[in-house]
Amino acid sequence: MRGEILSYDAVSGEGLISGDDLMRYRFSRIDVGGAQEPAPGLRVDFVPLDDRASQIIPLLIQAGGLSPAHMSYGEAPLSMWAYFVRCIREKFIDGDGRARRLEYWSFILFNWLTMMAAFVPFLVLVGLSDDSDPMSALMVLSLLLPVLWTLFLIIPGIALASRRLHDVGLSGWLYLVTFVPYVGGLFMLDVACIPSQPHPNHYGLAPKRF
């Protein structure tokens, strides 16, 4: 029979499974195959014995081909700045997996703030220049900084958008919708506001600890 883990207490090693037959079954950690820690929302296959479940096998490992090392439930929460830095340093071109709302909005926030900071040298030079003077070479050079920074953030931004789409159960290819005028922006804004799916999906476990 198949079902979904409703709850699990790591201290006692006991949990509860909601079977597809609408019945609930108690289980122990020793009944779960593999090194993976049971987690709420995880789909499993099991053998029912009265009101208990035995021979429990996590289905995501079978269906997705994931190893237990990739199945840790949730992740340690990071600060908004740490999420932004991770998107650039560790997941620059990584569109696989899932990204929670906090990670997405952290990138958007610091993308905007760093862009404004990159414009500061240009604005200072504009304020110091004479209105009668044409734009100097130094001013043109200072304008390159925000342009290059914008181009630099395009790739990690697309990768993050793909992971955010995965987090709500959608294909990363739907990011192409953002190129549709008006509709694309509203679509991505809607996706950015949708809560993470609390259960595992085709792209991995939920990044948020529920």
Rank of each mutant, 00 (worst) to 15 (best):
E103I: 07
I5W: 04
L141F: 10
P198C: 09
D94M: 01
Y8W: 12
G33R: 11
Y73C: 10
D190A: 07
F152S: 05
C193A: 15
V44L: 09
W112V: 15
F210S: 10
R101L: 07
W81A: 07
M139N: 05
I57Q: 13
P146M: 11
L125Q: 12
F187R: 02
G157C: 04
R26M: 01
Y25S: 00
L66R: 12
K91L: 10
P156A: 04
F84A: 08
V44I: 14
V183E: 05
D133F: 04
Y8A: 03
M139L: 13
Y104A: 06
L78K: 15
I61G: 13
G204P: 05
F27G: 01
F92P: 05
F27H: 01
S196R: 09
L138M: 13
Q197G: 03
A69Q: 13
P156Y: 07
D131C: 00
L42A: 09
P38R: 11
G19C: 06
I108Q: 15
M116Y: 07
E90C: 06
Q197K: 13
V191I: 15
M23G: 02
L59P: 04
E37S: 13
L16K: 05
M115W: 12
V147E: 08
I61W: 04
H70C: 02
S142Q: 09
R86Q: 14
A117E: 04
F210T: 09
D51L: 09
S162Q: 08
L102G: 03
D51M: 07
F210I: 10
Y8N: 01
L22Q: 13
L143R: 06
